[in-house]
Nucleic acid binder design. Structure first.
Length: 402
RNA sequence: CGGAGUGUAGCUUAGCUUGGUAGAGCGCCUGGUUUGGGACCAGGAGGUCGUAGGUUCAAAUCCUAUCACUCCGACCA
């Protein structure tokens, strides 16, 4: 242990996929569930998702969208309506066939009460949202419809990897309907720009934008635009997609309206989404051999204060100073929000606590001990340079370095 | 769905070839010493060895069946 220079074994160079698993464990982000392909997202990982959701949700609303919620279950027949869509998703659908359990001979529970029509668990919601839009749209005056939903979806993956590919994952899916193609294409491009801006400004991912080839296109789409992020194993990860669906789904779902000439016309629709894969992408792009590395804007805690209390005497004074500093820091703002400051008072040696937060990718670690109290200084460790002690800096500290 | 492999404590695993009282590390609990870069010592709790059957005086170990999971191929946000 004394000779190890990095916290994560193996290193990225030695075995990248294994390293990826290890940083997730080390940072306590998530774990595999007993159900194959599903994951338990732990507080630090879910906090990260919340920090992704909040700005994105704001950006969606700034671009005129509203949130709504559509059902988890989709009638099987809906999936059959769009031929390419069927082909794309049929192979990975979870199907619900019964609505009841009965106690069998040996105390085992046996499904009973077969459903008239089986339901699929949504792999995506174009069809069921399309059915709703068909009811809502009568006239060009009802358009556009600009709706987003935050939801979970299920795609029965045979080869899961935490955050990157899981059978169930969290995402947002925007679904819009427009009266003409140009407006729908513009919407598709606009939301891709939102994704690109979010990736660059919040996740610090220099993504490339582009259009998918026919073979990689979303099943049923006319055009699929995407953001691709480069990660450290020299691969590109598809981190977000925006689809122009043309009239394919409106014809399948019957989203028809009276246009400005009072002629019946099918709407032009789009859909766009990002998922918890963004977290996996972030980890693979920024992580190092000491754990994950979080950009300050999405770190659940941006600063961790670690009281260093070698002796019983003076402990109360150190804790008090830490509390005071935390309160001061929380009054500072970053991005128009209070700094997220955590005080680590766990009963654990200081060195171990420091490593915990390095592995969790916290941007700044502040350590305060008795000597600092006497000198009026604090130690600051920058997460991105995980090793080496930095010189004490005098209080008050500023947040400029963020 | 094709090919390979593995099931032993919360986690990682040794033991299996050659059958003979279930072992370790990490983690957890208690006490003490510690604490400015991942602490140490002592003690302690924790196991239907995946499941069912068979062989045997005796099975984690050998045989059969079964279930589950993992890895490699085709799909995918």
């Amino acid at each position: 242990m004394a000779n190890e220079t990095t916290a994560i074994q193996p290193s990225r160079e030695q075995d990248f996929p294994e390293w990826y698993q290890q940083i997730i464990t080390a940072a306590d982000l998530a774990e595999n569930s007993e159900v194959r392909g599903c994951m338990v997202i732990k507080p630090w990982g879910y906090g990260l998702w919340e920090r992704i959701q909040q700005p994105l949700d704001r950006m969606f609303k700034e671009t005129g969208h509203e949130n709504a919620y559509f059902p988890l279950f989709i009638p099987l027949s809906y999936l059959e309506k769009e031929a390419a869509h069927v082909e794309g998703f049929a192979k990975e659908c979870a199907v619900v066939t019964h609505h009841r359990l009965e106690v069998g001979p040996e105390g085992k529970l046996i499904p009973s009460g077969p459903l008239n029509e089986p339901l699929i668990v949504r792999p995506t919601s174009e069809t069921i949202i399309g059915a709703a839009y068909a009811r809502w749209v009568q006239s060009y005056r009802d358009l556009p419809i600009l709706i987003n939903q935050w939801a979970n979806v299920v795609r029965w993956e045979m080869r899961p990897r935490l955050f990157l590919r899981t059978a169930e994952f969290l995402w947002q899916e925007g679904h819009t309907a427009h009266e003409n193609a140009a407006e729908a294409v513009a919407e598709t491009e606009k939301m891709l720009e939102v994704y690109e801006r979010f990736a660059r400004e919040y996740l610090a991912l220099p993504v490339l934008t582009g259009e998918k080839s026919e073979s990689e296109r979303f099943p049923g789409a006319v055009r699929t635009l995407c953001i691709e992020a480069m990660v450290q194993d020299r691969k590109a990860v598809q981190a977000g997609t925006s689809h122009y669906l043309g009239q394919n789904f409106s014809k399948a779902s019957g989203i028809q309206f009276a246009n400005r000439n009072n002629q019946p016309e099918y709407a032009y629709t789009t859909s766009w989404g990002v998922s918890t894969r963004l977290i996996g992408t972030l980890l693979m792009a920024h992580g190092d051999d000491n754990g994950i590395v979080l950009p300050p804007k999405v770190a659940p805690s941006q600063i961790v204060i670690i009281p260093v209390t070698p002796k019983e005497e003076g402990r109360a004074a150190v804790l008090e100073a830490c509390e005071k500093l935390a309160t001061e820091l929380r009054q500072l703002q970053l991005d128009g929000e209070p700094l997220r400051v955590r005080l680590d008072t766990r009963d654990k040696p200081g060195g171990a606590k420091g490593w915990d937060w390095i592995k969790k990718g916290v941007p700044l670690r502040v350590e305060i001990g008795p000597r600092d109290l006497a000198a009026g200084t604090v130690f600051v460790g920058v997460g991105i340079r995980a090793s080496r002690r930095r010189p004490p800096i005098p209080r008050p500290i500023s947040c400029n370095r963020l």
